[in-house]
Nucleic acid binder design. Structure first.
Length: 857
RNA sequence: GCGGGCGUGGUGAAAUUGGUAAACACAGCGGACUUAAAAUCCGCCGGCCGUUAAGGCCUUGCCGGUUCAAGUCCGGCCGUCCGCACCA
């Protein structure tokens, strides 16, 4: 009778052995020998309190790759840290009266313990927390370097103001007009803010997406759309008659459709355009109109249903090519944030312009004729035509195709010195000021005499004060009695510190470089490790975090801080799916947690009340729906290996996976089945003679082929396929137990290989199995076995025989059997013969090693 | 509106150069062992026809096409999920 494997004993044991032997330490480049480097990283967690199943899945995937790379002989860096600044800490401080730091460090301690329970192959010597002054002090140096190089600057700007969190939000943090965290309606406010000049890199950030061939296509597309390049023409329309003084040169507009210039019927300014503001000073109606525009929200529904609103300024501009003038309107649909904040309207070929023109009765002249239309009969009703076609009604552009006409129009405008061809980006500079306490202080002093003064190097880091209160909303730094009062480093007079802190996305934009730079923050070591070879995390960071990190690496490179020519932080990226779980509701509509349920007579009831419970949809695990499963509870019940195995089985890593109790139990059964396999191997198996019996060779063949398949699956991030192969292999090895003594050696060989293959998935079980069959050392440090190419080739393969594309039989042939032989064997097959009865064979297709297809009349 | 993904048994899925559709697992059913249960082991498990069997027909959201051969390629629909969105 075999013994049972006890994860509760084995897991802590092996974890302490790994820690004692310090086997997961990344070697500095000088000690790595010839080993290639592999930097494996999962997105570092926010220390919210407890680890959740999403973390388990994320870190299990990274750990598979890290352990696999290590076994393959790489020098692996696999670090862990904490994205520790941010508002939940302040919210907790307000709710419970604790200091955000106390709350955060407490959470870190708890979650570190949870992650360690998972048996991850992490080099904990490099652990960092972004809220530690050691970390954010270096970040302040980076900020000052960026300032010196012109990559950071200050400007007054309209910002997204979250009235609940009382802070500014980046554009990316505003979702459907609401704060990404608070959900409150975002207001527009004019404030002086710090910005990073990410737009300087718009072109490179866009173009270099092409080089990221190990990123998901989806993420690249999302970034591409976010950066949003448009090729077009920036040009001015000169005033006819008196021009406003500030705009004597005319009105600058941007268009991607200069081919439709002859169809222009009006100019439209944004309500926030400088000229609009100027006019509003003397015209009260314009002020009223602006207020009306501002009332319409920025939410999706509001925009969809928003009516086009316009105000005719009475000003007129001259058409560049024709002897006519156009009216200048102010229109609510023109955005100040894009292009020049002014457009020319061509109603026939732009839906918004058409809606506007119909409402205010402006002219509609079509100038692009779709294929197959006659210019005498073609008319625009209420749908603008935006497709390709031949230009007409357009003087020198007549008869050109759309694309050629765009180039010709730009050339003419450039000749006339009215504008030039340009490229516009949707991407805006990154506002990083936050009116919050729990973040990295911006190392700046404001002096009335000297202006904006960087904190001198020697005075860094600017440390957050500990004695703060959260009894009122707003920024505690701002109302701290002493912290912000300093002497100006230049003139020595009284001055004030910048009390804003940096957006937490700054913290996460370079942490991977900090990990790589090692204990002494040596950026040459960082250059050795970077880029990250495999980054693993959630799709929710497809734009923000990944784009900012790409910007930061370029910035650090161009400041001479980091030798990373490509500027790309992450060579490989994988976005994993979420963990879902069934939801449950009581009859009075309360959500009921899975561990509060009991099954009685085939139906679910709430254990505490005995009330019936109904099953709801399968949804992402969330606290609000109460459908979470606590990893610690699972580890206590089944062990970490079971949790890891379950989240990697069944579903492909990029897809969502549903957590089920039955599935976890199945994984636990497999752990015992695998252990039993090793436990059943006779003592001394490793010293038995090799047998070349058919059965032994066959078993060895299975082992070597399985190994090769698992290798390929891990390389391709198909962990579910690797798991399926392991199941098949285990089933095969199980059958071999009833074989003769000639199989003992092959079983030992297979099990030794299997133990190594199990290691990335279930490292603790693998160690116990490895030890059980008498292998030396730790399997966590064992090299990945090599496959014997001879064993990957079969003597005989099964070849399906089709008649007219339907499978009728199969034959066994040598893989390299000559075509005529294969054809003869196929034709001679009895099942085939009965199908061919009385019919004439038109053709026989033999695809060696694949299939035979006999085509009959 | 624009861009993208997905759609295969009761369920998660596999089939990754166009070549045996449903590997592997979960659930279910049947059996062995057991006084009994649990655990474990063995077997069955897409649909229809066929008493059993042999076998046959159908089947990868729908319709059509290319091909000796289509889950896979092409065209057109339907459904669903995600991202972006008054970006000129």
């Amino acid at each position: 009778m075999t013994s049972r494997y006890n994860p509760q004993e084995a897991e802590p044991h092996w974890q302490s052995v790994w820690t004692e032997q310090d086997i997961f330490r990344a070697l500095p480049p000088s000690e790595a020998g010839g080993a290639p480097k592999a930097y494996i990283l999962e997105m570092f967690p926010y220390p919210s309190g407890k680890a959740h199943m999403g973390h388990v899945r994320n870190y299990s995937m990274g750990d598979v790759v890290a352990r696999y790379k290590k076994a393959k002989g790489h020098n692996v860096l696999h670090p862990m840290g904490w994205d520790a600044f941010g508002m939940p800490a302040e919210n907790a401080a307000m709710e419970r009266g604790t200091h955000p730091g106390e709350w955060t460090y407490g959470n870190i301690d708890h979650m570190r313990g949870q992650l360690k329970q998972l048996g991850l192959s992490i080099d904990w010597s490099r652990e960092l927390a972004t809220c530690n002054a050691d970390y954010y002090g270096l970040q302040q140096r980076l900020f000052l370097k960026f300032l010196e190089e012109g990559l950071a600057y200050r400007k007054s700007a309209k910002v997204n103001w979250d009235p609940v969190d009382m802070t500014v939000l980046a554009n990316e943090q505003v979702i459907d007009g609401k704060g990404w965290r608070s959900g409150a309606d975002v207001e527009q406010r004019e404030l002086t803010q710090w910005f990073f000049r990410i737009t300087d890199y718009a072109e490179s950030l866009l173009d270099d997406l092409k080089t990221l061939d190990r990123w998901p296509e989806k993420v690249r597309l999302m970034q591409e759309n976010w950066i949003g390049r448009s090729e077009g023409l920036q040009m001015r329309f000169e005033f006819d008659g008196d021009a406003p003084k500030s705009h004597e040169y005319g009105i600058e507009i941007f268009t991607t459709r200069p081919d439709t210039l002859f169809g222009a019927s009006f100019i439209a300014l944004s309500p926030d355009h400088p000229l609009t503001l100027e006019l509003a000073e003397t015209a009260a109606e314009i002020d009223t109109f602006r207020a009306e525009c501002a009332k319409i929200g920025t939410t999706e529904e509001a925009i969809e249903t928003a009516e086009k609103l316009g105000f005719d300024t009475g000003l007129r501009v001259r058409h560049p090519f024709e002897d006519r003038t156009l009216p200048v309107w102010i229109a609510n649909f023109v955005l100040m944030g894009y292009g020049t904040g002014a457009i020319f309207g061509c109603p026939a070929h732009d839906q918004r312009d058409l809606d506007f023109a119909r409402k205010y009765d402006l002219s509609v002249t079509p100038v692009v004729l779709p294929e197959g239309e006659s210019k005498h009969h073609y008319a625009i009703e209420n749908e603008a035509y935006t497709g390709p076609g031949r230009i007409y009604n357009s003087d020198f552009l007549d008869n050109l195709q759309k694309d050629a006409a765009i180039l010709a129009a730009i050339a003419r405008v450039e000749e006339m010195d009215l504008g030039r061809g340009t490229t516009e980006y949707r991407l805006r500079d990154w506002g990083v000021s936050r009116q919050r306490y729990w973040g990295c202080p911006i190392p700046i002093i404001k002096c009335e005499t000297c202006g904006i003064v960087p904190v001198p190097e020697a005075d860094l880091p600017v440390v957050l004060p500990d004695d703060v209160s959260f009894d009122v909303p707003g920024n505690p730094l701002d109302r701290h009695p002493t912290w912000k009062h300093v002497k100006c480093p230049i003139c020595g007079d009284d001055a004030i510190r910048e009390t804003d802190t940096l957006d937490t996305f700054v913290d996460s934009s370079w942490y991977f470089a900090r990990f790589a730079a090692g204990e002494h923050n040596d950026m040459s070591e960082a250059a050795y490790w970077l880029p990250v070879d495999q980054y693993v995390g959630g799709i929710e960071h497809a734009i923000l975090h990944l784009l900012y990190s790409r910007f930061f690496m370029r910035g650090m490179r161009d400041c001479g801080l980091l030798d990373l020519p490509s500027g790309e932080p992450f060579a490989g990226l994988f976005t994993q799916g979420m963990i879902t779980h069934e939801t449950y509701k009581s009859s009075d509509g309360r959500w009921v947690a899975p561990d509060e349920l009991e099954e009685r007579d085939g139906s679910l009831i709430e254990a505490a009340t005995g009330e019936p419970v109904s099953r709801g949809a399968i949804e992402k695990m969330s606290k609000s729906k109460r459908n979470t499963v606590d990893p610690t509870a699972i580890i206590e019940q089944f062990g970490a290996d079971v949790a890891r195995w379950f989240v990697l089985s069944d579903s492909p890593p990029e897809r969502d996976v549903e957590w089920t109790q039955a599935g976890a139990e199945g994984a636990a059964r497999f752990v015992q089945r695998a252990w039993a396999l090793f436990d059943a191997l006779p003592e001394g198996a490793e010293t038995t003679e090799t047998s070349d019996s058919e059965a032994a060779t066959d078993l060895r063949r299975t082992s070597h082929k399985s190994l090769a398949a698992i290798e390929k699956a891990i390389d391709e991030f198909r962990f579910n396929s690797a798991v399926a192969t392991i199941y098949e292999w285990v089933n095969r090895l199980k059958k071999a137990e009833s074989g003769g003594d000639d199989l003992v050696h092959a079983r030992h060989e297979g099990l030794a290989m299997l133990a190594v293959c199990l290691t990335p998935f279930m490292p603790h079980l693998a160690e116990s199995c490895w030890q059980r069959i008498g292998q030396t050392g730790l399997v966590s440090t064992a090299q990945w076995p090599t496959t014997d190419p001879a064993l990957l080739i079969e003597d005989l393969i099964t070849l399906p025989i089709q008649v007219n594309g339907k499978r009728r039989s199969e034959i066994k042939v040598a893989p390299d059997a000559p075509k005529p032989d294969v054809e003869a064997m196929a034709m001679a097959d009895p099942a085939v013969q009965s199908q061919l009865d009385g019919k004439s064979v038109k053709k026989v297709i033999v695809v060696p090693g694949r299939i035979v297809n006999i085509v009959v009349a």
